[in-house]
Amino acid sequence: MSKFIRQLLPFATLTLLIAALSALEPDTFLTAENFLNVLSRSSVNGIIAMGMTAVIISGGIDLSVGSMMALAGMVGAGVMLKVGGPDAGGAAMVVGTGVGIGTGLLCGLLNGALITKLKLPPFIVTLGTMSAFRGTSYIINNSKMYDVPTYTFLGQANVLGVPVSVLILALVVLAGFFVLRYTPLGRYTYAIGSNREAAFHAGVNVDRNLIAIYGMTGLFVGLASMIQMSRTISAQPTAGISLELDIIAAVVIGGASLSGGRGTVIGTIVGTLLISFLRNGCTLLGISTNIQLVVIGAIIIGAVALDQLARSKAEAT
């Protein structure tokens, strides 16, 4: 019962927030347009957060996602322009997108391989690759960005009135939910995070699964990077600086434990939306971004503190 309440907590907070903002700003906040806008802005973070959820459930962390996003964008855009010139057409865009996503996947696999084969803590490996990926994305075009004026579909187009990015987010959330709940990979992710030794003794191939988890995260980062690139019709080597912290915050607010074994896709998406709606609401209410930062900080600490409280109560009974 109390476990149920605990899982409901972020959900309740989100509902409360939406209700409050609807009451305060009925004309600007409570509109379909605003909601789709918020969802669309959440798409990049939400997609990456799906991968981060799996990583955190496995007891790991990925600090490199922000840099990885910049690198995937720079490689994808670079190839796109090389193939299709400044006004790249459909074929070039498809190739560039594929290469960009593939870059993310490779980066993720590299993280996984370093963590398992060198037996290093994920924090250290991804701290290192965070720096290396960032550096590489600067090197690619001499610290300059790429303009891709024609690349508008993923980030700006609508299908049936819904932004494409929101549709992709929905698909990734479904995929994340499916993987964690219905596949052995998802099950082993929980087992490894809960007790890595026990998982190993139960015949789980820990290394292979961890590589898959980090690889999947890389894949999602690549995808998010393409959406980000399309939103700004450019690839920037400075993209996603400190993005990893926002993502980790969303996952933690959603109830995942940094010590592993615990976390859900639903929780994470609620955490992501909570942050997005908070930002949106503050903007609509004319509250400065500086104050937003303070509020988000308080929510991270409050969410985890409440969770701990509920947990110790549950243990006492």
């Binding site: 052995p184 929980y190 007790n195």
Partner: peptide, 24 residues
Amino acid sequence: TEDRKRTGLCLELPCSYNITLPNL
């Protein structure tokens, strides 16, 4: 294993998960 906490069970996961873990 002799140490069910360390090398046997994933304690915070459901019982069913622990039973099926090597048997999927």
